[in-house]
Design a protein around this nucleic acid. Structure first.
Lengths: 197, 197, 197, 197
DNA sequence: AATGAATGAGTCTTCATTCAT
DNA sequence: TATGAATGAAGACTCATTCAT
């Protein structure tokens, strides 16, 4: 484990509190209480509220990236990769809806350096899947479109869909998820494919 | 005009300042300065910072809705309606990227009642286009998929794509916008259509 | 008057509180209470506790310098100037003992720039009286000693003596002051004079 | 040795840190680091920061007193005693300028009991040298002045002069010290003496 | 109606001190 | 005896809001 126990406790607590209340409405005392430590203890591990927030966000972002990487192997075909992405995306949203919002979106009024870091991560991901899309084009199975635009569409559609589905009660979720994924994939792959037949 | 002059000046100023700095980093004084009025004057028109923010957000949301309504007439075909939505969406993002973010996204850590109001507006829009999608299905031109899911995909793809394009310099923008719209529409409509042919 | 009323009220209050409690033990709230204003009001006039302290100290230091300048005119003889300095010094210590300590001494653990500023003021004064001493030497009435050393002696002796006398009850003060001044001047001038006779 | 080794280490470290940073800016951790012990260890020897500070100050003050006592023997003549004081004073200032400031000055915003203790020490010294001055008067070699005032003058002049000289580079110091002492003593003794001749 | 000087509740942050090991 | 991780009281500072003019 990369961080000491107490540091992890604080990061986890901060994730919960920041997700619930947002950066400005989260009080250091809330986070300390949630972590079961004293207020001052946070400052033994993080120099400021902002540093704690940034550390937490970066941890989450790297966790999401890792999850995606673990679910996609290079011997997969391009369509398998895209389908795996779709499943992982649903997974992430299901488990970390609030934080994923913080990580994925432009909350552009925040610290420049964090925004830059997140942008970089997002662009890396985008470029990776752009490459996957290009594989499809090169293989002749995807029609000749701008792979960046197609990738943005793919991820954007996925994003909105998964958010909608993840609002549902747990009972409905699994069924609806499969149904939504089917719909999504059938439309996307049909739309992308070079010829009909 | 619905509001007095001074009230409008304040709403417009607040839009600019909130968009630039976000709710918590925007100071009432900044807004007063931007509006060219005294700090106290804002309180003659709005009871609090929150009320000002909510008024401004609601104004914007209603403006966006109006813009969409104005660009879609009921005698259009379902596909024309969807294409018109795509163009309007690009327009809105181009002109009000930051605010659109505030309006469209779940900034769920905020006032419940505003969130509820926005949700309602979004759902109305969603349901309207779900109906448009259903028209397409009923007409036999769109395959038999869940129209809500298809609509979410449509809007989500559009959202991500338009945000990406709107980062560009003005010189590139028009060309890229058309190119991106072409790509988007060609994929979506191909993906949605009932048969290949 | 150089500053607005409220600003002056705060400066005067801060003088009292800083003198009583020292920089670190003085609370902004104490100063606000003493000035009869709210805590936040101080920050409308001074950006920080340190800035308030520095402003106050500089005001005092310039006040002391002004008082000395007003009591010494250039048509005085060198010995009259030195005698006038002695009287003014007693006056200052009597009225502003605590602050004079802050201004005159090296409270070297403080902000570099303030220390530098004070050093400059002190050196200007020192050099002025060094010049006065030199006048005495040039006129043949003071023996040929290093005028800087003689000046330091003069001021140092005065400093300790006046502090001691100013501890006294008001009843004793006037009498003792005259007696101490007599003693001081008789020793200093006798010690400085070129010849006996 | 009066204190255990560790206790001494801590006292010496605190002297250095307090002198450099002042009471309020010195952190217990700084002192612990300087002493090469853990933060908690300080509390095995001193009940609080204040107690440590007071112990250190008292040690220093007693050291200065001891140094003075060692350099002045009762078989010296009154003028030899005063001259010895002058030399010791330069010595002390040279080696412990910062601390001497803390010990000698009225840092009146501090703990009453420490201030009282220091006052007592200073008064003892003052009274001792007042006695020396009185010896001079009784012997007919010093004119009939208030011996307390003369003593205060003597020490005050010495104080300012030695501080000034001790700012100098080591190369200049020895030469200037002798020159300053000469000036000082020639003025003081000439000023004090009963008759000229 | 418009203002902006004044306010003080609210929060981050520091650091002397404690105590389990 | 020695430690340093943990604590929380205390205080500087911010800014939405008020109100006398």
């Amino acid at each position: 484990m990369q961080f000491a126990d107490t540091k992890w406790k604080i990061i986890h607590a901060s994730r919960k509190v920041f997700a619930e209340k947002g950066f400005h409405n989260a009080k250091m005392e809330d986070i300390a209480d949630e972590a079961g430590v004293g207020k001052g203890t946070i400052y033994d591990y993080f120099s400021s509220k902002k540093e704690l927030f940034e550390t937490m966000i970066k941890e989450m972002a790297m966790g999401f990236r890792k999850l995606i990487q673990e679910n996609i192997s290079e011997d997969m075909d391009f369509d398998e990769k895209l389908k795996a992405l779709a499943r992982v995306k649903f997974e992430i949203i299901k488990n970390h809806k609030d934080i994923e919002n913080l990580v994925f979106k432009n909350f552009s009024n925040f610290d420049e350096s964090l925004m830059g870091w997140l942008e970089k991560i997002r662009n890396e991901m985008l470029e990776y899947f752009e490459g996957v899309m290009q594989e499809g084009i090169d293989s002749g199975r995807i029609k000749d479109i701008n792979p960046k635009y197609a990738t943005l569409m793919y991820i954007g559609g996925l994003h909105f869909l998964s958010h909608y589905i993840c609002h549902m009660e747990d009972a409905d979720y699994e069924k609806e998820k499969e149904s939504a994924l089917d719909t999504f994939l059938s439309i996307m792959f049909k739309g992308l494919e070079k010829k009909c037949l």
